[in-house]
Amino acid sequence: METKAIEVLQIIESNGRIPLPTLAKMVDATEEEVQNILKKFEEDKVILSYSAVIDWTKVEKQEGVTAMIDVKVTPQRGVGFDEVAERIYRFPEVKALYLMSGAYDLQVVIEGKTMTEIARFVSEKLSTIDTVISTTTHFQLKKYKHDGVVFDQGEEDHRIVVTP
């Protein structure tokens, strides 16, 4: 893959809303070249989506609960973890699903309105899948950084430093 194409990917990964003329200047290309690069990446499923990082704690009555669920499963002959992973990621509550190394096989990230809703998902949907052996649920308490974006950096301390 050529250097300009990689540069385009790196730039839009950190800012998917960057204007096309600015992006073209940054990689020293024409707008048409950059537009063709983006179109090709979208067609080839290299660029899957453009998204925003939102601090839901600052939106009134919209804050929910996020949980990371570690799942131990029995892999199936011929398909490994793929079949059970597909069953899990089809649930609308599932925001992310990863195959992991270590004590657990999969990590499921889900969002709900309440802890009870998360508990119901685990007990009624996730743990009822035949190949699921066990689960461990972790609730997200505070988000400090996500996708490279730091949350709630707070006010800068403007006090004068006093030293003896």
Rank of each mutant, 00 (worst) to 15 (best):
Q10W: 04
E42R: 09
Q76D: 11
R159N: 13
V53A: 05
E124C: 08
A52S: 15
V73Y: 00
E63R: 15
E42C: 00
I110V: 15
T22A: 15
T66S: 12
T116P: 00
Y98L: 10
A85D: 02
E111F: 00
D70K: 07
L48T: 11
K39L: 12
R87F: 07
H138K: 14
V73G: 02
D70S: 12
I11A: 04
Q107V: 12
A24W: 02
K45W: 07
Q76V: 14
N15K: 04
K39W: 08
E63Q: 15
L38G: 06
D28Q: 13
L126A: 06
A67P: 05
Y98S: 03
R120G: 01
M100N: 11
Y98D: 07
H146T: 06
A67M: 07
D55C: 07
L23E: 02
V65K: 08
A96F: 09
Y104E: 03
F91H: 11
I54A: 11
K58R: 15
D152S: 14
G78T: 06
T57R: 13
E60F: 02
D82T: 15
S51G: 11
I118A: 02
R77M: 14
T163V: 14
A103R: 13
L126P: 00
V161G: 04
E155K: 14
K40M: 05
K40R: 12
Q62K: 12
I37H: 04
K4I: 01
A52R: 11
F41V: 01
K142I: 04
D157E: 14
S101T: 13
E83P: 02
V94R: 05
V59Q: 11
Q10M: 09
